[in-house]
Amino acid sequence: MDTAGLAQGVLAGQVRSIARAISLVESGRAERDQLLDELRRRDDPPGEEQSIGAAVIGITGPPGAGKSTLISRLIMSVRETGEKVAVLAVDPSSPFTGGALLGDRIRMDLHGTDPGVFIRSMASRGGTGGISAAALETVQVLVSAGYGTIIVESVGVGQSEVGILTLADIVLVALTPGSGDEIQALKAGVMEIGDLYVVNKADYPQAEAMVASLNAALEETLRGGLAPLVLRTVATEGTGVAELYRAIGERLDQLHRTGELERRRQQRVIDALREMATDLFSRWISERLSADGDAVSRGIPFAAMRQELEQFLEQFTWRNHNGQRND
């Protein structure tokens, strides 16, 4: 595969190149790292940036909270500024068949043929944390393709949506009143991950109780040194969306000023590296175990194997894009 040509297409913002680059990233094939290196090398050099750059907004929350409808409204707000926007909607794969039915874009179809909007559905393909392992790299592709705002939607079930933390600059948790969420919200890990909490369907009778219990639950909680905000929206009518969009921008500015944004982005690179290495190692050991089952069943001395692996790993060094040692 011509990864240099593909990278060029991505950087030129060509839809088919972007779409194919995402498929390559998802496939896990070795060329995906060539492509990503190509893109990283040509992005602006880090460290000199004064502006925030592309904003990655993560949205999570329980099924039915209105995440997709909310995103559809946020797309409008972004498009009013003239900026291009991309959405990555992650849904679970079946652990049994590996298949997936991806329907999030049904609620975003107001933007049908707007060339400034790119929407991609992604199946989690066994990734943990409600987020596909490839989502992190897909965000990189979309940033390189020139999308100023990238919205990532992930399935919110229980505590697993902490995965969205690793790839977003700012995390929105969407909740809806009167569905037992008040109690859920208090116990689940979601109370630690949001920069902003959105009570959607705020025209429902129990909305104010929901807002109150959220505010109570978030008391003394800090995210990136800042107190999370609680906002109200009615996404189906667009109510509160302009305020939400403004709040996202203000919070991003604050995070940028305190250096927290930069810290989160550095963490993202570290997580991507860890993801790649973990994936490689786990695949390697699985393949060896199934291929060499006979040898393994005859008995392996664990201590000797550990020593051998450690010796092998000690030879590892970090290298920069020019192939020189980084340490």
Partner: peptide
């Protein structure tokens, strides 16, 4: 989906133009 494919559903009342846009974006 049950046969193991990743299936994207557009919802009803799409123009051919929108369908083609979606097909390209979703690869």
């Amino acid at each position: 989906r049950d046969a193991g494919y990743e299936v994207i559903y557009t919802g009803i009342r799409q123009t051919p133009e929108a369908i083609v846009t979606i097909a390209l974006q979703e690869d």
